[in-house]
Design a protein around this nucleic acid. Structure first.
Lengths: 245, 245
DNA sequence: GGCCAACGTAACACGCGGTAACAAAAGCGG
DNA sequence: CCGCTTTTGTTACCGCGTGTTACGTTGGCC
């Protein structure tokens, strides 16, 4: 596939150059853009593997641009927003974005998300990303990606809380990758201010514990949602994704 | 089998040439590469006996590359990382790496690991390395390679701590080779800074003692986990490995 | 045998993480 | 607006794994 080519769309020039530099340093080819027309010219003039699209674009609206692009193209899109409202996030998903991340963000997390989306795109190149409904399978469990519930291997329906669902999504997006509590918290709280290095208590521990009690056969000896002592948590389950639906 | 052919994957060119030179001097054919696409082209264009894969590859992630390669190929992989986090190590194992070593590393230890992995691969040439579940047998004991437990010759289940399991893995990878405490510590702590010649207390002694108390018939007169006075410890047991499972 | 360094290990200390119990916050219906 | 329920975060407690210390024992060497 060669070097991944990434389009950075933001109307703030400072943000734009910061992001392009960051991605260049991490081995991407990062191209700046600030409007829908610029995006389109890039798309027609060369290969673009992923678009990082700011939601607030001055006179234009990233969500709508995303919807329009998606109606025509298969290119993966990650929406970026300074708005902390959670519902915006859902709006983004429904419009067809592949992921949604809040500004300011943890650079490492952004990188991880970008890579995750690109890998998915690579695995299922053509049809992917037209329909938004994705179904996740892991260790016999089934998660439809939108409702706050999962189906157990035996067929039972287990209902989750919003937070538990959000955690599950984070885990499903990063299987076999250890996540620190801070990373998880940042991924959960779209309101996440990066300038908040303060300890966030043991909320994540509790959340993990509660999710475990619902989806682990034996919560005392977790098989999927493992603890990495001194580090964080690790989701060890082979995740497969059903596009379509 | 001829001269072993080894692929050195690292994005730092200095590191790459240092490693390739080192292996060339030790009788390997070492080929440099720096990206997943390069790896793939090498794999298709010629025989590769082992891949030494850096975890941090700028834009790409070694762990994920490892997982992808493993889904398709049988080639042995050793992950190399500068990350000091121990969890990465486990993540590597679970993703299907045959071994995992921290940077900066002891060159001799690296050589030993490389040889160990290649020998295993040679013993079980064709089917090997598709399934990740490797089972180790030694003196009637059985270790499944991933759970923190061993089965005694009599069939009892003995549970180990993470650290004890890690130690056991090191020993199983180096049977009949005397290991100094420093070597063991370096192999255990991926946090191993080579610039840390400071004494690390008697932690290894304790660890060895605790493992002995669990797997030696008579811990006072150890048969498998022997001490080499003034040197370190030596694992004297014939180790055999079951691929597949 | 006597000396000393190396080793085994019991006892202790410490930190991390699980979790019960409680408190605070968010929904929800009247 | 007010109770009630559900969800979410906090606090406190405890167990477990792991490293350190201290002391006893072993084994080599003179």
């Amino acid at each position: 596939m060669g070097i991944p080519r990434l389009l950075v769309v933001d109307d703030d020039s400072e943000m734009r150059s910061m992001l392009t530099q960051f991605f260049q340093q991490n081995g991407f080819i990062a191209l700046p853009a600030s409007s829908e027309s610029e995006i389109r010219s890039h798309l027609t003039s060369g290969r673009i593997d992923l678009i990082l699209l700011d939601v607030m674009l001055g006179d234009e609206n990233g969500v709508e641009i995303c919807a329009r692009l998606r109606a025509e193209q298969d290119v993966p899109i990650i929406l970026v927003s300074a708005l902390s409202a959670d519902h915006q996030r859902m709006a983004g998903y429904e419009v067809g974005a592949d992921d949604y991340i809040a500004k300011p963000f943890n650079p490492q997390l952004l990188l991880a998300r970008v890579r995750a989306v690109m890998q998915r795109a690579q695995r299922t190149p053509s049809l992917a990303y037209r329909r938004r409904t994705r179904t996740f399978h892991f260790d016999g469990w089934v998660f439809d990606g939108k409702r706050d519930e999962v189906h157990s291997p035996e067929g039972y329906l287990v209902s989750l809380s919003q937070r538990e669902t959000a955690l599950l999504k984070v885990l499903l997006a990063n299987p076999h990758i250890p996540l620190t509590r801070d990373e998880i918290a940042a991924a959960l709280d779209v309101t996440g201010e990066t300038d908040k290095p303060e300890a966030q208590g043991r909320a994540i521990d509790m959340l993990v514990g509660r999710l475990r009690s619902k989806i682990e056969v034996n919560p005392k000896d977790p098989q999927m949602l493992r603890t990495e002592r001194g580090v964080g948590y690790l989701f060890t389950a082979n995740v497969s994704v059903d596009e379509d639906a």
